[in-house]
């Protein structure tokens, strides 16, 4: 590793610790959702769909609050934004589930899932951020 790399990683202990804790919590919440609502082979992956859409809505609210309203403790954003929400939502399961649907002979469901997740996730983050900005308008901000 070159010098700039180690410099950029120096003093990151506390942040790495809270991101790890948040990531474990987020991953457990996603695993719990998959146990509660197991996916049907060949069917539309509703559980991962909702996990990702809910995670995107929550990050829309959260980022507006911490960047435009009240930053809070410096570890709040890495813990909740990077850790919990990043660990909860998943991009890898999204693409591999599409691969499985195509391979199992359900390309139509795969394409519908691809488009629906993208559309719903981007709509959720946009609406959540806009609604939060509107709700906090006029309140004491940063």
């Amino acid at each position: 590793m070159t010098a700039p790399d180690t410099a950029v990683l120096r003093g990151q202990g506390p942040v790495v610790a809270v991101v790890a804790a948040g990531g474990a919590i987020g991953a457990c919440a996603r695993y719990g959702a998959a146990l509660l609502w197991p996916a049907r082979t060949g069917g539309f992956p509703w559980t991962t769909f909702w996990v990702n859409v809910v995670g995107c809505a929550v990050i829309g609210v959260f980022m507006v609050v911490v960047t435009e309203f009240r930053a809070g403790h410096p570890l709040v954003r890495p813990f909740f934004g990077t850790g919990v929400l990043g660990g909860f939502t998943t991009f890898s399961t999204y693409t591999v589930d599409i691969q499985k649907l195509v391979e199992d002979g359900h390309p139509g469901t795969g394409i519908a899932y691809l488009a629906a997740t993208l559309l719903a996730a981007l709509t959720a983050v946009t609406l959540a951020a806009t609604a939060t900005r509107r709700a906090l308008k006029g309140k004491k901000s940063l």
Binding site: G23, A24, N52, G86, T89, F91, S92, T117, A121
Partner: peptide
């Protein structure tokens, strides 16, 4: 590991 390494929330944000 892969679930937490990858993210949809940061991607959309």
């Amino acid at each position: 590991f892969c679930g937490a390494l990858t993210t949809y929330s940061t991607f959309s944000h």
